[in-house]
Amino acid sequence: MAEAARRVQSGPPKRIGVRGWVYAGRYGLDRYLYILQRASGLGLILYLFLHIYETGIRLRGEAAWSATMALFRTPVFVVFEFILFAGFVFHALNGLRLIFAELGWLLGPPTRPVYPYRTSIRRHRPWVYALMVLTGLFVALAAWDIFVLLD
């Protein structure tokens, strides 16, 4: 087909755009984990910059540093710290799972597509549940440590 003819025929591209990865709609669990992995990754990068800035405050002397530390002991920042830790645990554990899966492990071998199909994503599901249990465990421990033990 001639290039000109094609341009007349096709309408505007229906690319989903950013909504395509922030909204998983009716897709399965792995698609939601994909969003969480990205969101937590971006959050951790943002935190890295804040962290560098925050430790830099020490250069401005003892008083400034103490004031900042006091600020971090206020409830808002304690909750923030907890969310940060939860994001870190999830990103680390899910990242490990992804490294294994992306190297072809934990997915099972190719099978003949006989209906009803058994996909690698389904075979992999137990590992996803294990990841979630482990993440939940660490986050619960962190909650106990941060909210109960600290004060």
Binding site: D30, R31, L98, P110, P113, S120
Partner: peptide, 18 residues
């Protein structure tokens, strides 16, 4: 990054994600 959506949607059981 292994969102698994392609495999889930494939009508022929091809499992592109795998």
């Amino acid at each position: 990054h292994l969102a698994g959506a392609c495999t889930e949607a494939c009508p022929k059981g091809v499992d592109p994600a795998l």
